[in-house]
């Protein structure tokens, strides 16, 4: 299915005829078929759909943590489908901020050190790294928790640390896979508000996978996936 938006602003993400399938028990199961669409710079997009619809797979492909079977994905003008594993890893480190459902913080590191991790791959000095980390933690309201380990933080706080880690490199896009899926309602609202603020104030392009309609309401654009196809556009 082809569905290329007529975006009025420059698209930051372009998908062209993207297909993806998995092999399960000797059978090839198609997950995404011929997906084409653009995501505009500064967009806050929610991808919705039932389980198995391919929304997380689509997010993984855009974020460069999975490979397409066919088609092309351009992010910020770079065709990430043509990059080698090493190039892709380097590209992810500079261009993509990840927010996961289960936070995925490294338990042996403090909040500060977790946020610092992506900066280790940059050429920043130690002092510069400290400044960036401190700023990112201030943005998410956890400047006073920087020496705490993940186990000493609540779920909402851990997710805020994860958001700080996602934005600390000032990436091109932020991808979030069910970011509120493991949180209570209040914490979920705080996280969604934080993401909305990052999108609105910093102009970050946010692509969020969710099956929660409340979460999707925070997005400016909602797209539905059904059995590997984009089915509609809602704004």
């Amino acid at each position: 299915m082809t569905d290329v938006s007529d975006a009025t602003v420059t698209p930051i993400v372009r998908l062209r005829s993207v297909s993806k399938s998995y092999r399960r028990g000797g059978q090839i199961v198609p997950v995404l078929e011929e997906i084409s669409f653009d995501i505009a710079q500064g967009e806050f997009l929610a991808l919705m759909g039932p389980s198995g619809s391919g929304k997380s797979t689509l997010l993984n492909l855009i974020a460069g943590i999975d490979k397409v079977d066919s088609g092309a994905i351009l992010v910020g003008g770079v065709d990430i489908t043509s990059l080698s594993e090493t190039e892709l890893a380097s590209w992810r480190g500079l261009n993509v901020g990840f927010i996961f459902q289960f936070y995925n913080l490294i338990p042996v590191l403090t909040a500060f050190e977790n946020v610092e991790l992506p900066l280790l791959l940059t050429s920043l000095s130690r002092r510069e790294r400290r400044e960036h980390v401190a700023m990112a933690l201030r943005i998410v309201g956890l400047a006073d928790r920087m020496d705490h380990r993940p186990g000493q933080l609540s779920g909402g706080q851990q997710q805020r640390v994860a958001i700080a880690r996602a934005v600390v490199t000032d990436p091109t896009i932020l991808v979030a896979d069910e970011p509120t899926g493991d949180l209570d309602r209040r914490s979920a609202e705080e996280i969604l508000h934080l993401m909305e603020r990052l999108n609105r104030e910093s102009g970050k392009t946010v692509i969020m996978v969710t099956h929660d309609p409340r979460a999707a309401e925070q997005a400016r654009t909602i797209r539905h996936l059904e059995k590997g196809f984009l089915t509609d556009v809602a704004a």
Binding site: A63, I65, E85, T86, A89, S90, W91, R92, G93, L94, F98, F100, N104, I106, L117, P118, L121, R165
Partner: peptide, 14 residues
């Protein structure tokens, strides 16, 4: 294995 996947996601190489 999940943590190593997170490291790889963040851009750390093999």
């Amino acid at each position: 294995i999940g943590e190593y996947a997170v490291f790889k996601t963040l851009g750390f190489s093999w």
